[in-house]
Design a protein around this nucleic acid. Structure first.
Lengths: 327, 327
DNA sequence: CTGAAAGCGCTTACAG
DNA sequence: CTGAAAGCGCTTACAG
């Protein structure tokens, strides 16, 4: 392994000068710069990041803490984070928290010892002291942790409004809203968006809490559809729940979209594979991850960030679970 | 930050003794051990992994190189790797390669500088010198890289045989096999399993190459179904392709499973969400990831490993795209 | 069984 | 503008 000493020797300067040149910190004469540059090229020298970390107490590691990579929302997020991180020379460490504060805390502690540069976090711990006290650059994704931590999120409220209108515009008069878990910020924003929109018009509606889980959603919807045969539209707060709703309709022999129209939320790949294809409010998950990463890196590198709160637009994707014509 | 010096001072011994105690290497008297142990507890001392790495040229980082975490096969794999790694005190770095040797090579190089402990790799580069020459513990997943690298894989051939028989047993006489990409080991093993099984019986069959991609599969199947209306069974080498087939059937108005039965391969969550639910040959992806991680860690820690090749059993999951009774 | 000392490969005041 | 030297926090022969 060739070290900074070898370079210094070859270039006829001290290691201090080489270090200054490499980090573009402090003055280096033109002459010295050229000599060092040549030596680096000739020896194919590459700086040892571990040795550097030990000195600077910083690394180019980014921690990505999310509940569970297995949840279809997160792979694309992880992909975006990794892509952008790579661009800036950072490396990402994957941390599945299962939403457990213990696991989150644990990761923060062990990675701090590795001089991790910062964290991107998706968590429900609305008041999470381990983040607030981490004393490290952190960016929150999808869910606000506290006002000091920059947050990137979809425009959930507007999205919910869009989805609701899609159903109303297509003639639905009795809408079932599948509300997500009540301790989830985005789910609550969607709920608000639905409520504001539905209450402005003359339509009946039901709201039911429903986890973002396929089989559970299916059961809940099946029961609702049995008890309330007048329901002619379902707006689910997630695509997985919407898939459950679609399955329930199929089992009960209710024609979609003729008798019942369904709209989901998320825009995951699953949607197009269903039959009929799922109309949904699509989030730009990749973009969320990309922005989060850029903001985090700015924080790490002590650059100014534009906002404390970034809202990424959503868009309605029309497919087969809604009728084509607007009435 | 409390260092090994502080501990040594408090315990009244040298840092060398503390280090020996901490690493259980070399002799430490009972007396010294107790003093150090007490000092560690009192000071809440925790070893600095970066400083250690610089000396030992090892870390507890594991690199997970996979084509794309966005592909539904990989999240569960990543989850398993992370879970097991955590158990043994390792941390995992996520690397999306897009199957590009350049990116793979790049990751290997930059992570080697960080003294990465080893890699778990899923790659199609059947002859990948950058792995063979990495001079690091590596375990291959799903796809054999070379005979020196331990490999974990599903029993693809037997799985394909299972899937084929499922169709045959339920009366299919004209089977379409959607073969995966020809440069993919697992896809080829599945092809072999299909061929061996189908050729033992009196049945017609077609084989068509088909990427593991929803829309492409749908188109290919639609065409085949048009050209060969006698097809009464489809065996797809992946669930995503099977989903495409199911969609194609729906568009053509072919009743599944009455007129056409479909079997997939993978066992991803998508399968149960489709209507009808997808019968599939399920891989135990989590188990594959878990075994791969354990084998890698054994290699890293210089323990003997039992085999060079681990084959994880698959199982047939029967759902709605096949008929219930065996004829 | 133990400690002094060198070393891992860098960075960073500081003096010149 | 530059170099000698100390230091980051550990590990590891080596001598005793």
């Amino acid at each position: 392994m060739t070290t900074i000493r070898d370079v210094a020797k070859k270039a006829g300067v001290s290691v201090a000068t080489v270090s200054r040149f490499l980090n573009s910190t402090g003055y280096v004469s033109q002459e010295a710069a050229e000599a060092v540059s040549a030596a680096v090229a000739e020896l194919k020298y590459e700086l040892n990041p571990v040795a550097r970390s030990l000195n600077t107490k910083k690394s180019n590691l980014i921690g990505l803490i999310l509940p569970d990579i297995t949840n279809p929302f997160f792979p694309e997020l992880a992909r975006a984070v990794e892509d952008i991180a790579l661009t800036y020379g950072y490396t990402v460490i994957l941390c599945n928290s299962d939403e457990k504060p213990e696991k989150e805390k644990n990761y923060i502690e062990t990675l701090k010892k590795k001089y991790i540069a910062g964290f991107i976090v998706t968590s429900n711990q609305s008041d999470a002291p381990h983040y607030a006290n981490a004393n490290l650059p952190i960016v929150a994704l999808d869910r606000i942790i506290n006002e000091k931590i920059p947050t990137i999120s979809s425009n959930n409220k507007e999205g919910a409004s869009l989805g609701t209108k899609a159903l109303l515009d297509r003639g639905c008069k009795n809408i079932l809203f599948l509300r997500g878990p009540e301790d989830l910020n985005p789910a609550n924003d969607r709920y608000e968006g639905f409520m504001e929109t539905i209450q402005q018009v003359d339509a009946n509606y039901h709201v039911v809490s429903c986890p973002f889980h396929f089989a559970d959603s299916q059961k809940i919807v099946e029961q609702m559809l049995r008890d309330h045969p007048e329901i002619d539209g379902i707006f689910a707060s997630s695509d997985v729940s919407a898939a459950g709703a679609l399955k329930a309709a199929a089992l009960l022999g209710i024609a979609v979209p003729e008798k019942l129209q369904i709209v989901g939320f998320d825009g995951v790949a699953l949607g197009e594979m269903l039959t009929p294809g799922l109309t949904t409010v699509a989030q730009d998950v990749y973009k969320m991850g990309a922005i989060a990463t850029r903001v985090l890196i700015k924080r790490i590198e002590n650059q100014e960030i534009d906002h404390q709160f970034y809202e990424v637009p959503v868009k309605l994707v029309l497919r087969g679970t809604t009728r084509s014509g607007i009435e």
